[in-house]
Nucleic acid binder design. Sequence first.
DNA 1: GAGCATGATTGGAG
DNA 2: CTCCAATCATGCTC
Length: 598
Amino acid sequence: MSEENDRKSAQVSGDSTETVKLPDLYTAMAGICYNNSHSTSSKSDENKGLVDTHPDSTVTKQHQAIDSQDDKKSVQNTVVSTVSDISDSQNYHVPEQAKSQPPSSSNHPLPNFSTWDQLPCPSLQNYPGSQILNPLAAAAAQYSEYYNLSSRSTGMVYEDWQYPVYYSNYYDNPADVAKYCEQQKHMDVNFDKTKLSTENLSQDSIVDRSCSTPDLVLSVLQMENQIKGEINGKDRLNHWYSPVSSPDCSPITGIPITAESPAPSTEQDSGFFSEDPVSPIFMSHKQTVTQLEETNQKYYVYVPESNEDWKNYHHINPVPLMCSDMTRKMVNKSAMLSGWKPGPGYPMYPPEVLSRNPGFKQDSDNWQVSKYPQFSMGKGHKSGLKTKAVRPTRCATPIPSTITSTGQVQSDKITSSLPSNMMEAHTAANKISQEMHSVQALSPLEKSTKDIVNGFINRKPTLISTVKPSLPTKRKLEAIDEKNVKRVRHNEPLNQQGISVMQRWYEQNHENPYPSKQDKEDMARLGGISVTQVKSWFANKRNRTNNTRPKVHKRNVEEKLLELCHQLASDARKSTLDNAFVIQQLSAIIDEHHQVPH
DNA sequence: GAGCATGATTGGAG
DNA sequence: CTCCAATCATGCTC
């Protein structure tokens, strides 16, 4: 690995001693793991065959207590690894004997469960000193495609990308599938409903939605494997992208989620491709309505208050079916070790239904924004028919009917512009949501959890659209519109990870603080910000530290002139300088000045 | 409210 | 396109 790669790896992995536990497949996919800094360092020999032992691998008494409660349940393998291991599939090693040597449940660091329903509600658990981390963030951060894809969401998203998520959210029973197919047929989008097979759905799945999110995820992973045949030789390429967007969830920084954490979906990384990796743990059948003072919008925030709620998590969880290749590897490996297989009851989508738009260039190693403009129209889609991406999540979904100010205008515009089927689904989602869940205040959760929840409640609103708001070209025009539209701040503070990444680079390159395009892209990716933000940050940084080329040169010229003046003053007493020498020195400085571009 | 820090934007230069 | 300087916009502190 090159030195640069080493550096990048170090940046991604953060503290090399940091321990991240992947409790199991399910929690991994939920983007949750626990980094327990207060735990004891006990790891029995029994587990050594299973885990990638690490000096900091830890087990808490609390975990053990939980474990003991679940001892009777079937044992799941637990993978404990360092972040760097997770970040690098090659290092993500699980010993061979793990397959034949199940862990001792008494030493199992986290709750055992073999099905989704057995996973205790995370928000009810109190892991002292634990932080919510997201190992997938680090893994996904290495894939520039993820970010590029997100950043080039210029307002139009090809319909292909909507189907998987859309379908999975709202049409998970045969009746819905049929309805959906009918709608598609009606829309004349050259839609072949046979591609949406329902044969795997049991008749009673209408009421028994037994397919959990992990089921779904692995279905997609299986599908991804099929798709992957189309793109042989493209190691970096993934058809699905990790639902990771909030850098502060990442073990890169180890920063826990707080009220200051950025919204999972921002203007810079459109929500569709970067679903909130954390909020799912707060989504369940309980909801609270919070009025955001700034926007006067109401948001539902789902908070699991019981294990029962948590069990029902997948009923409303719209985790996008996107994952990085690394995620796939991780999940597949975990699934393999646990012997877990996708459960019945969920339709398998053939690749052609979900494949990337045909405009995608497969033959280039440089998949860059500038080269490949936003999704071109391809076969199977009516020319000119593009739809705005809908963020089909019910986490923090604005309720248009209750919005009275700025946000309402925005939301209504978005929803009313949706295709009828999406509009219907969106409405239905909210309706179902309201029917299913009574509005009530947060119950007394553990303080840490409550704080985190409040963080989400108070975070910036997430538009249901991924469409990057089109800003007026003139700010003064914006001001005029302010009469009715409350301005959305354009200078949201950058996340700490992004700043630290750029700061580090700047300090290391103080003499030449001009990152290359690749450097900028790397920093953007690692920092979870856009390339534009990187550019802007460096421009401001250079300017405000008087480190721009013109300023540096001016300073150099001034210093040389000053030095010459000192020399003149000094040598005047000695009378050793003649006019010719002074002129020569001044000319040299002037010549140098003219050579430097401004 | 002033002062400051910071992020974004603008228009010009190259 | 990048870079720059100026400026705008916003939030924070006092």
